[in-house]
């Protein structure tokens, strides 16, 4: 999908999310779905498989997200599956999240952690990142066991990497 097309879909989805309310929560859910889609090969293959009828794939989406995500999130993901654009789900969702954050005069801070963070930790982390970058950040936390420990935060072009994985990679390079 072209960048223009992604931007067009992202604009449309962002508008729907904002109109439907609970934009921040929906953005968080879409962000998590996008990260799960990226990291889970089986999910990506299943939702992208054109040989599986679109209705069946939408049912899979509803079974996975139903009850755990709000209706807007389910509908947006189902819409992208139905239109055959689910492969671009991460790019569209990232663009949506950034649009929504910019609408609140914020910058998306994608944080990867080996363990789930508490709300209190997220608040302190958001405050720390805002202080460090000089930007008001919209924190999006992804639980990623591959980082082993610590956190890596990406705010725009800035990357603050404090993960055990990166230390091990540095050590491997030194060895």
């Amino acid at each position: 999908m072209s960048r223009e097309k992604i931007a067009a879909y992202a604009g449309a989805v962002a508008s729907i999310v904002e109109v439907e309310g609970q934009a921040e929560r929906t953005a968080d859910e879409l962000f998590r779905v996008a990260r799960a889609f990226e990291s889970n090969d089986q999910l990506r293959t299943t939702l992208s498989d054109a040989t599986i009828p679109s209705d069946r794939r939408q049912q899979v989406v509803e079974q996975l997200l139903g009850g755990r995500a709000n209706a807007t999130t389910v509908h947006v993901v189902g819409f992208l599956v139905a239109t055959g654009n689910v492969r671009d789900l991460p790019a569209i969702v990232d663009s949506v999240v950034q649009r929504l954050a910019r609408g609140r005069d914020q910058h998306v801070a994608e944080v990867r952690s080996a363990i789930a963070l508490t709300s209190e930790q997220e608040q302190r982390l958001a405050a720390a990142l805002s202080k460090a970058t000089g930007k008001t950040v919209d924190l999006k936390v992804v639980v990623d066991p591959s980082v082993l420990g610590g956190l890596v935060a990406t705010v725009g072009d800035e990357v603050i990497d404090g993960t055990v994985r990166s230390r091990l990679d540095q050590l491997k390079t030194l060895i």
Binding site: S113, A114, I115, L117, Q121, R124, L125, A127, A128, L129, K131, A132, G134, L148, G149, G150, L151, A153, I160, G162, V164, L168, L171, K172
Partner: peptide
């Protein structure tokens, strides 16, 4: 061996400490 050993030695408490350390470090950056 190092990732295996490190991963095995990383308890939840150690991971929480690392998170706290990161937050403290980032907050103290400026």
């Amino acid at each position: 061996a190092t990732p295996i050993v490190v991963e095995a030695s990383l308890t939840d408490a150690a991971r929480k400490d690392l998170v706290e350390s990161f937050i403290s470090g980032v907050g103290a950056a400026r």
